[in-house]
Design a protein around this nucleic acid. Structure first.
Lengths: 120, 120
DNA sequence: TTCGCAATTGCGAAAGTCCTAAAATAAGGT
DNA sequence: ACCTTATTTTAGGACTTTCGCAATTGCGAA
Protein backbone atom coordinates (compact mmCIF):
# COMPACT_ATOMS: atom_id res chain seq x y z
CA UNK A 1 0.00 0.00 0.00
CA UNK A 2 2.73 2.48 -0.79
CA UNK A 3 0.32 4.65 -2.68
CA UNK A 4 -2.07 4.80 0.24
CA UNK A 5 0.80 5.95 2.41
CA UNK A 6 1.60 8.68 -0.07
CA UNK A 7 -2.00 9.77 -0.08
CA UNK A 8 -1.82 10.06 3.67
CA UNK A 9 1.36 12.12 3.57
CA UNK A 10 -0.18 14.32 0.91
CA UNK A 11 -3.21 15.11 3.06
CA UNK A 12 -0.96 16.11 5.95
CA UNK A 13 1.08 18.37 3.71
CA UNK A 14 -2.12 19.82 2.39
CA UNK A 15 -3.13 20.66 5.93
CA UNK A 16 0.19 22.42 6.46
CA UNK A 17 -0.03 24.29 3.17
CA UNK A 18 -1.46 27.54 4.45
CA UNK A 19 0.29 30.46 6.13
CA UNK A 20 -2.40 30.86 8.75
CA UNK A 21 -2.30 27.21 9.75
CA UNK A 22 1.48 27.34 9.93
CA UNK A 23 1.19 30.41 12.12
CA UNK A 24 -1.27 28.63 14.38
CA UNK A 25 1.01 25.64 14.79
CA UNK A 26 3.98 27.85 15.55
CA UNK A 27 1.95 29.71 18.11
CA UNK A 28 1.13 26.41 19.73
CA UNK A 29 4.78 25.47 19.87
CA UNK A 30 4.97 26.39 23.55
CA UNK A 31 1.99 24.22 24.39
CA UNK A 32 -1.74 24.37 24.71
CA UNK A 33 -3.47 27.71 24.20
CA UNK A 34 -7.08 28.91 24.11
CA UNK A 35 -8.57 30.00 20.81
CA UNK A 36 -9.05 33.54 22.08
CA UNK A 37 -5.33 34.03 22.64
CA UNK A 38 -4.38 32.58 19.29
CA UNK A 39 -6.87 34.79 17.52
CA UNK A 40 -5.59 37.81 19.34
CA UNK A 41 -1.92 37.12 18.71
CA UNK A 42 -2.36 36.43 15.03
CA UNK A 43 -5.13 38.95 14.51
CA UNK A 44 -7.47 36.48 12.87
CA UNK A 45 -11.17 36.58 12.18
CA UNK A 46 -12.72 34.09 14.58
CA UNK A 47 -14.72 32.36 11.87
CA UNK A 48 -11.75 32.05 9.63
CA UNK A 49 -9.53 30.77 12.43
CA UNK A 50 -12.13 28.20 13.34
CA UNK A 51 -12.16 26.88 9.81
CA UNK A 52 -8.42 26.47 9.91
CA UNK A 53 -8.70 24.70 13.26
CA UNK A 54 -11.23 22.39 11.67
CA UNK A 55 -8.75 21.48 8.95
CA UNK A 56 -6.04 20.74 11.48
CA UNK A 57 -8.47 18.72 13.58
CA UNK A 58 -9.68 16.69 10.61
CA UNK A 59 -6.10 15.54 10.06
CA UNK A 60 -5.56 14.94 13.78
CA UNK A 61 -2.75 17.41 13.84
CA UNK A 62 -4.15 19.27 16.82
CA UNK A 63 -6.12 18.21 19.86
CA UNK A 64 -9.13 20.08 21.15
CA UNK A 65 -10.00 20.45 24.81
CA UNK A 66 -13.01 22.29 26.05
CA UNK A 67 -12.87 23.95 29.47
CA UNK A 68 -15.82 26.05 30.46
CA UNK A 69 -16.62 28.46 27.71
CA UNK A 70 -13.17 28.33 26.22
CA UNK A 71 -11.59 25.87 23.84
CA UNK A 72 -7.94 24.91 24.03
CA UNK A 73 -5.85 23.56 21.21
CA UNK A 74 -2.49 21.87 21.24
CA UNK A 75 -0.21 20.19 18.75
CA UNK A 76 -0.67 16.46 19.04
CA UNK A 77 2.81 15.39 17.99
CA UNK A 78 5.98 17.51 18.05
CA UNK A 79 7.10 15.70 14.92
CA UNK A 80 4.93 18.19 13.07
CA UNK A 81 6.90 21.05 14.56
CA UNK A 82 10.07 19.29 13.48
CA UNK A 83 8.82 19.38 9.93
CA UNK A 84 8.31 23.10 10.32
CA UNK A 85 11.84 23.44 11.67
CA UNK A 86 13.31 21.66 8.70
CA UNK A 87 11.40 23.98 6.45
CA UNK A 88 12.98 26.92 8.21
CA UNK A 89 16.43 25.51 7.58
CA UNK A 90 15.42 24.93 4.00
CA UNK A 91 14.37 28.55 3.75
CA UNK A 92 17.68 29.76 5.15
CA UNK A 93 19.73 27.61 2.81
CA UNK A 94 17.80 28.75 -0.23
CA UNK A 95 17.40 32.29 0.94
CA UNK A 96 18.04 33.69 -2.48
CA UNK A 97 15.58 31.56 -4.40
CA UNK A 98 13.14 31.84 -1.55
CA UNK A 99 13.09 35.59 -1.76
CA UNK A 100 12.63 35.56 -5.51
CA UNK A 101 9.82 33.05 -5.05
CA UNK A 102 8.18 35.38 -2.58
CA UNK A 103 8.62 38.38 -4.84
CA UNK A 104 7.17 36.39 -7.69
CA UNK A 105 4.15 35.47 -5.61
CA UNK A 106 3.70 39.11 -4.66
CA UNK A 107 4.03 40.26 -8.22
CA UNK A 108 1.45 37.73 -9.35
CA UNK A 109 -0.87 38.92 -6.65
CA UNK A 110 -0.63 42.56 -7.63
CA UNK A 111 -1.09 41.52 -11.24
CA UNK A 112 -4.20 39.64 -10.32
CA UNK A 113 -5.53 42.62 -8.40
CA UNK A 114 -4.76 44.89 -11.32
CA UNK A 115 -6.53 42.53 -13.69
CA UNK A 116 -9.66 42.30 -11.62
CA UNK A 117 -9.60 46.05 -11.12
CA UNK A 118 -9.29 46.68 -14.83
CA UNK A 119 -11.96 44.16 -15.72
CA UNK A 120 -14.52 45.64 -13.35
CA UNK B 1 8.73 39.31 7.73
CA UNK B 2 7.51 36.28 9.63
CA UNK B 3 4.39 36.14 7.56
CA UNK B 4 6.34 36.14 4.33
CA UNK B 5 8.31 33.20 5.66
CA UNK B 6 5.11 31.36 6.40
CA UNK B 7 3.85 32.05 2.95
CA UNK B 8 7.01 30.56 1.58
CA UNK B 9 6.71 27.46 3.73
CA UNK B 10 3.11 27.11 2.69
CA UNK B 11 3.95 27.12 -0.99
CA UNK B 12 6.53 24.40 -0.48
CA UNK B 13 4.05 22.28 1.45
CA UNK B 14 1.55 22.89 -1.28
CA UNK B 15 4.03 21.50 -3.77
CA UNK B 16 4.47 18.40 -1.62
CA UNK B 17 0.74 17.94 -1.15
CA UNK B 18 0.11 15.43 -3.87
CA UNK B 19 0.68 11.66 -3.85
CA UNK B 20 2.18 11.66 -7.33
CA UNK B 21 4.67 14.38 -6.50
CA UNK B 22 5.63 12.59 -3.31
CA UNK B 23 6.13 9.43 -5.32
CA UNK B 24 8.32 11.29 -7.79
CA UNK B 25 10.49 12.72 -5.04
CA UNK B 26 10.86 9.34 -3.41
CA UNK B 27 11.82 7.83 -6.73
CA UNK B 28 14.48 10.50 -7.06
CA UNK B 29 15.87 9.67 -3.64
CA UNK B 30 18.70 7.65 -5.16
CA UNK B 31 19.70 10.51 -7.43
CA UNK B 32 19.05 11.89 -10.87
CA UNK B 33 16.75 9.96 -13.19
CA UNK B 34 15.33 10.50 -16.66
CA UNK B 35 11.63 11.25 -17.02
CA UNK B 36 11.07 8.06 -18.99
CA UNK B 37 12.22 5.87 -16.10
CA UNK B 38 10.13 7.74 -13.55
CA UNK B 39 7.05 7.50 -15.71
CA UNK B 40 7.63 3.82 -16.21
CA UNK B 41 8.22 3.01 -12.56
CA UNK B 42 5.22 4.95 -11.34
CA UNK B 43 3.02 4.15 -14.31
CA UNK B 44 2.14 7.77 -14.98
CA UNK B 45 0.64 9.47 -17.98
CA UNK B 46 3.48 11.49 -19.53
CA UNK B 47 1.43 14.66 -19.72
CA UNK B 48 0.28 14.37 -16.15
CA UNK B 49 3.79 13.63 -14.92
CA UNK B 50 5.10 16.62 -16.78
CA UNK B 51 2.58 18.86 -15.08
CA UNK B 52 3.72 17.60 -11.70
CA UNK B 53 7.33 18.18 -12.69
CA UNK B 54 6.38 21.70 -13.61
CA UNK B 55 4.95 22.27 -10.13
CA UNK B 56 8.11 20.94 -8.50
CA UNK B 57 10.26 23.04 -10.79
CA UNK B 58 8.29 26.20 -10.11
CA UNK B 59 9.15 25.83 -6.42
CA UNK B 60 12.75 24.95 -7.21
CA UNK B 61 12.39 21.62 -5.51
CA UNK B 62 13.85 19.70 -8.43
CA UNK B 63 16.49 20.49 -11.00
CA UNK B 64 16.11 19.78 -14.68
CA UNK B 65 18.94 18.69 -16.96
CA UNK B 66 18.53 18.04 -20.61
CA UNK B 67 20.79 15.51 -22.29
CA UNK B 68 20.07 14.72 -25.90
CA UNK B 69 16.44 13.88 -26.28
CA UNK B 70 16.00 12.95 -22.65
CA UNK B 71 15.36 15.10 -19.61
CA UNK B 72 16.79 14.29 -16.21
CA UNK B 73 15.39 15.42 -12.90
CA UNK B 74 16.94 15.40 -9.45
CA UNK B 75 16.03 16.65 -6.00
CA UNK B 76 17.81 19.92 -5.41
CA UNK B 77 18.16 19.67 -1.64
CA UNK B 78 18.07 16.49 0.48
CA UNK B 79 16.37 18.55 3.19
CA UNK B 80 13.18 17.92 1.25
CA UNK B 81 13.72 14.19 1.55
CA UNK B 82 14.27 14.66 5.26
CA UNK B 83 10.83 16.19 5.48
CA UNK B 84 9.45 13.12 3.78
CA UNK B 85 11.33 10.92 6.23
CA UNK B 86 9.85 12.71 9.20
CA UNK B 87 6.44 12.23 7.68
CA UNK B 88 7.11 8.53 7.46
CA UNK B 89 7.96 8.43 11.16
CA UNK B 90 4.83 10.42 11.82
CA UNK B 91 2.85 7.88 9.87
CA UNK B 92 4.31 5.01 11.86
CA UNK B 93 3.64 6.65 15.20
CA UNK B 94 0.06 7.43 14.30
CA UNK B 95 -0.52 4.24 12.46
CA UNK B 96 -3.93 3.78 13.93
CA UNK B 97 -5.31 7.21 13.15
CA UNK B 98 -3.56 7.17 9.83
CA UNK B 99 -5.34 4.05 8.79
CA UNK B 100 -8.69 5.39 9.83
CA UNK B 101 -7.93 8.57 7.93
CA UNK B 102 -7.11 6.53 4.87
CA UNK B 103 -10.24 4.43 5.23
CA UNK B 104 -12.26 7.58 5.60
CA UNK B 105 -10.75 9.00 2.44
CA UNK B 106 -11.47 5.76 0.65
CA UNK B 107 -15.01 5.65 1.90
CA UNK B 108 -15.59 9.20 0.75
CA UNK B 109 -14.17 8.32 -2.61
CA UNK B 110 -16.41 5.30 -3.10
CA UNK B 111 -19.33 7.41 -1.96
CA UNK B 112 -18.43 10.00 -4.50
CA UNK B 113 -18.17 7.36 -7.20
CA UNK B 114 -21.50 5.91 -6.15
CA UNK B 115 -23.07 9.33 -6.25
CA UNK B 116 -21.79 10.15 -9.69
CA UNK B 117 -22.80 6.71 -10.90
CA UNK B 118 -26.28 7.10 -9.56
CA UNK B 119 -26.66 10.60 -10.89
CA UNK B 120 -25.65 9.68 -14.43
C1' DT C 1 13.94 17.11 -44.89
C1' DT C 2 10.95 13.92 -42.87
C1' DC C 3 9.84 10.47 -39.35
C1' DG C 4 9.41 9.16 -34.69
C1' DC C 5 10.14 9.38 -29.89
C1' DA C 6 10.55 12.23 -25.51
C1' DA C 7 8.64 15.69 -23.05
C1' DT C 8 5.96 19.72 -22.56
C1' DT C 9 2.07 22.91 -23.15
C1' DG C 10 -2.78 24.55 -23.74
C1' DC C 11 -7.52 23.87 -22.78
C1' DG C 12 -12.01 22.75 -20.64
C1' DA C 13 -14.41 20.23 -17.09
C1' DA C 14 -14.74 18.59 -12.30
C1' DA C 15 -13.41 19.11 -7.72
C1' DG C 16 -11.24 21.41 -4.02
C1' DT C 17 -9.77 25.57 -1.19
C1' DC C 18 -10.35 29.99 0.91
C1' DC C 19 -12.60 34.05 2.42
C1' DT C 20 -16.45 36.97 4.19
C1' DA C 21 -20.68 37.50 6.33
C1' DA C 22 -24.64 35.60 8.62
C1' DA C 23 -26.67 32.20 11.54
C1' DA C 24 -26.27 28.67 15.00
C1' DT C 25 -24.41 26.47 19.44
C1' DA C 26 -22.60 26.38 23.99
C1' DA C 27 -21.67 28.10 28.59
C1' DG C 28 -21.88 31.57 32.22
C1' DG C 29 -23.53 35.34 34.54
C1' DT C 30 -27.72 38.41 35.96
C1' DA D 1 -35.44 33.01 31.13
C1' DC D 2 -32.35 36.48 28.99
C1' DC D 3 -28.09 38.46 27.57
C1' DT D 4 -23.25 38.19 26.50
C1' DT D 5 -19.13 36.06 25.16
C1' DA D 6 -16.64 32.22 22.82
C1' DT D 7 -16.51 29.27 19.14
C1' DT D 8 -18.30 26.84 15.35
C1' DT D 9 -21.09 26.05 11.25
C1' DT D 10 -23.25 27.29 6.98
C1' DA D 11 -23.65 29.46 2.53
C1' DG D 12 -21.99 32.04 -1.27
C1' DG D 13 -18.84 33.29 -4.64
C1' DA D 14 -13.95 33.81 -6.35
C1' DC D 15 -9.93 31.39 -7.32
C1' DT D 16 -6.91 27.33 -7.80
C1' DT D 17 -5.72 22.50 -8.67
C1' DT D 18 -5.91 18.35 -11.24
C1' DC D 19 -6.84 15.43 -14.98
C1' DG D 20 -7.31 13.78 -19.79
C1' DC D 21 -6.81 14.81 -24.39
C1' DA D 22 -5.08 17.16 -28.26
C1' DA D 23 -1.57 19.94 -30.15
C1' DT D 24 3.32 21.28 -30.01
C1' DT D 25 8.27 21.50 -29.35
C1' DG D 26 13.05 19.49 -29.34
C1' DC D 27 16.16 16.28 -30.98
C1' DG D 28 18.31 12.42 -33.19
C1' DA D 29 18.04 8.94 -37.00
C1' DA D 30 17.03 7.57 -41.57
Amino acid sequence: MPDALRKFKATIFQALAHPTRIAILETLRGGELPVSIIIERLMLEPANASQHFAVLRAKHIVTRRKAGSQVYYSVRDPLILEVLDIMRRYFQVHLEESLSLLKEAEREETERILMTTVCT
